[in-house]
């Protein structure tokens, strides 16, 4: 696991559900075919209402034009991030688009598990309400060893909640690697 992640912030509100992250009509593409799976990146966050896309102003496309990768690699979310369906396509789509970490006030259970067990994203929880403090486009530095988020644009520092009991799975890169490391499976 990398110790420091750098990236531009993309800020979203509360209750970003899996239909907004990857609309159901796109759940048909292969996740294993390298080329076809880029569609997930292309359609990531495509159902977020445009006025709520990239806060505080809104109207910021996560993916430009025909691209499948985003210039934003750290998502700042409100409460209940990833609520709704069990589709693992949601953290997969964000990872495909280039997202490395999500920093939200809280998560829905299945999205959180999928992010961790699938090894797609690092789901951090905030101590403070960061969606009012960080702007889309702010340059961020995430210190994974010390659970600190630095906003380089605003020169502010935010403390994050430690990953706690899921840390070993995150460090291993997902449930299967973790289970192999701890000799649960071959």
């Amino acid at each position: 696991m990398e110790k420091v992640l750098n990236g531009k912030a993309y800020v979203l509100g509360n209750n970003i559900d899996t239909d907004q992250i990857i609309p159901a009509e796109h759940l048909v593409y292969s996740l294993t075919d390298e080329d076809e799976s880029k569609k997930y990146g292309h359609f990531a966050l495509s159902s977020v209402p445009i006025e709520k896309a990239g806060l505080p102003e809104g109207g910021v496309s996560f993916i430009e034009g025909d691209n499948w990768q985003s210039e934003f690699t750290i998502i700042i979310g409100g409460s209940n991030f990833g609520c709704g369906s069990s589709r693992e396509h949601a953290p997969f789509a964000l990872q495909k688009a280039g997202v490395k970490a999500i920093i939200a006030e809280s998560y829905a259970r299945i999205f959180y598990r999928n992010s961790v067990d699938g090894g797609f994203l690092i789901p951090y929880e905030t101590v403070d309400k960061l969606i009012d403090k960080i702007k889309t486009g702010d340059q961020l530095e995430l210190d994974l060893e010390n659970n600190i988020l630095k906003n380089l644009t605003k020169e502010e520092v935010h403390h994050l909640k430690p990953l706690g009991e899921v840390l070993p799975i995150v460090e291993a890169g997902g449930l299967f690697n973790y289970a192999r490391k701890s000799a649960m499976i071959l």
């Binding site: 996740l31 709704g84 369906s85 069990s86 589709r87 693992e88 299945i110 598990r113 999928n114 067990d117 699938g118 090894g119 997902g174 449930l175 299967f176 289970a179 649960m184 499976i185």
Partner: peptide, 30 residues
């Protein structure tokens, strides 16, 4: 089940919940 509404089955006095593909693949093998 690989569906968030798997909780439906709880109406039968059982524990039922949804998981994603990785968790389901893990169950499938173990």
């Amino acid at each position: 089940g690989t569906d968030s509404h798997t909780c439906t089955s709880g109406a039968f006095g059982m524990f039922a919940t949804g998981v994603g593909n990785t968790d389901a693949a893990f169950i499938l093998g173990t």
